[in-house]
Computed example of a mutant assay.
Amino acid sequence: MKKVKKAIIPAAGLGTRFLPATKAMPKEMLPIVNKPTIQYIVEEAVESGIEDIIIVTGKGKRAIEDHFDHAFELEINLVEKGKLKLLEEVRRPSSVDIHYIRQKEPKGLGHAVWCARRFIGDEPFAVLLGDDIVTGDTPCLKQLINQYEMLQCSVIGVQPVSDQETNRYGIIDPIGKDGRLYQVNNFVEKPAPGMAPSNLAIMGRYVLTPEIFNYLSLQEQGAGGEIQLTDAIQKLNQYQNVYAYHFDGIRYDVGEKLGYILTTLDFAIRNGELRIPLLKALEEILSRESMQKVIG
């Protein structure tokens, strides 16, 4: 039985929702408190047992490579100043074996995954999207890998969303359930409002068999005129069972502005150093807002 040891992290998107901040900085490098979003994703992969990671980048993403490389001058400076704890934090991203490949054209998530096909070869692999950060006792990806090892089939991470949000996600059409595990009839990419077969949404974590590349290689356009990973998963499901797993954990949406702000606040509140001053500052802001409404 081949283990899941490789992971793909697509990071070639233009980040238009965060313009102008992402004009010169990759959206994956936007920080949550003091750590870029992509580092949370990489750390989840490593904690799940992944040994090799390939990040699919695009034009203007060099900052990602620099972040996961050694910064010798900075490290020497921290050693000289005795800031050893901070040195450990700085070195942590560069301790992972990471490879890079460019998606030369923005053709969609399915195409980005297909670009890494030679890196994956004939092994099962994981895909982690950077718009979702998940926290929990057991890493989200590890939960999916555990299911894969029992089933020897592709497993997709899902969680419920409100009926009003189903048109934003890939949605599963379940036909059977065993605890948190679902057998799936169809995978539907961004169904029209009111047309979703369920409220169980695909949340950016996948464990896939290499046969998925047979369908991604067709380069068929789906929703938004892009090559959709969900469409290839649906085709794979017709020949080889693809399961969905309702993973345990708190999922944070950092792919849009409000979700990003709320994630930053939540992580900051859980930071022992920032919690008290932040709560005090938020109380002052709310008080000031209330006063302005009364005056207005």
Results as ranks from 00 to 15, higher is better:
V4L: 07
A7L: 13
I9F: 10
P10D: 04
A11I: 07
A12L: 06
G13L: 04
L14W: 08
L14P: 02
L14H: 11
L14V: 10
T16S: 15
T22P: 11
L30V: 08
P31T: 09
I32E: 02
V33C: 05
V33D: 04
Q39C: 13
E43F: 09
E47F: 10
I53V: 15
I54V: 15
I55S: 05
T57D: 06
G58K: 04
A63Q: 14
A63K: 13
D66K: 11
D66Y: 11
D69E: 13
F72R: 12
E75G: 04
I76F: 11
N77S: 11
E80S: 13
K81F: 08
G82P: 07
G82Q: 11
G82A: 09
K83Q: 14
K83P: 08
R91N: 06
S94T: 06
S95L: 12
V96K: 11
R102I: 06
Q103T: 03
V113T: 02
V113Y: 04
R117M: 05
F119R: 09
I120H: 01
D122A: 01
P124E: 08
P124S: 09
A126F: 06
A126H: 03
V127H: 05
L128Q: 06
L128H: 00
T135K: 15
T135W: 12
K142L: 10
L144W: 04
I145Y: 02
N146S: 07
Q147T: 07
C153Q: 03
S154K: 02
S162P: 01
S162K: 15
T166P: 04
Y169V: 00
Y169Q: 01
G176N: 14
G176W: 09
D178N: 13
R180V: 03
Q183D: 12
E189F: 00
K190F: 03
K190P: 00
A196H: 07
P197I: 11
S198P: 13
N199A: 14
L200N: 09
I202L: 11
I202P: 00
G204P: 03
R205T: 04
L208F: 07
T209W: 01
N214D: 13
G224F: 02
G225Y: 05
E226A: 07
T230F: 02
Q234I: 00
Q234K: 05
L236H: 03
A244Y: 08
H246Y: 12
D248G: 08
G249Y: 11
I250S: 10
Y252C: 02
Y252Q: 03
D253Y: 06
D253M: 07
I261A: 10
T264F: 08
L265I: 10
L265K: 04
F267R: 06
G272E: 13
L274S: 03
I276T: 13
L278K: 03
K280C: 08
A281N: 08
L282G: 01
E284C: 06
E284P: 01
R288C: 04
S290N: 14
Q292L: 15
K293H: 15
I295F: 12
